[in-house]
């Protein structure tokens, strides 16, 4: 049984309790989102998102990620194709990004 099955998630698949998050869960959620493997570049984004959420209390927007983690927009969309805003938040165990940019 996968670890993910025992975790409480909302109807869109976001973790209800960010504290439940572990790296293993991130890998499983990423697979659900079509990312077979999480590279070092993925982890850099995920770790930035987690740290940002911890300090600000909100899931970071894409622009906060590109500026803060130093990942160019093009690369961010390549790392998390088809919807990086939701994918990064979901895999990082956070809620939807709060903010429009």
């Amino acid at each position: 049984m996968s670890a993910l099955e025992t975790i409480e998630r909302n109807e869109e698949g976001f973790l209800v309790h960010p504290a439940d998050w572990t790296k293993e869960l991130a890998v499983e959620i990423a697979q659900e989102e079509g990312l077979d493997e999480l590279s070092e570049a993925h982890w850099k984004v995920i770790e930035f998102a987690r740290a940002n959420a911890e300090s600000s209390g909100a899931s970071p927007t894409l622009r906060q990620i590109t500026n803060g983690a130093g990942v160019p927009t093009k690369e961010l969309f390549k790392l998390f194709p088809k919807g990086p805003a939701k994918k990064v938040a979901k895999i990082s165990g956070l809620g939807k990004p709060e903010g429009c940019v």
Partner: peptide
């Protein structure tokens, strides 16, 4: 710009 960026972020 705002809505287009939001759409891309959501995979649209």
């Amino acid at each position: 710009l705002v809505m287009g960026w939001a759409a891309l972020g959501n995979g649209i």
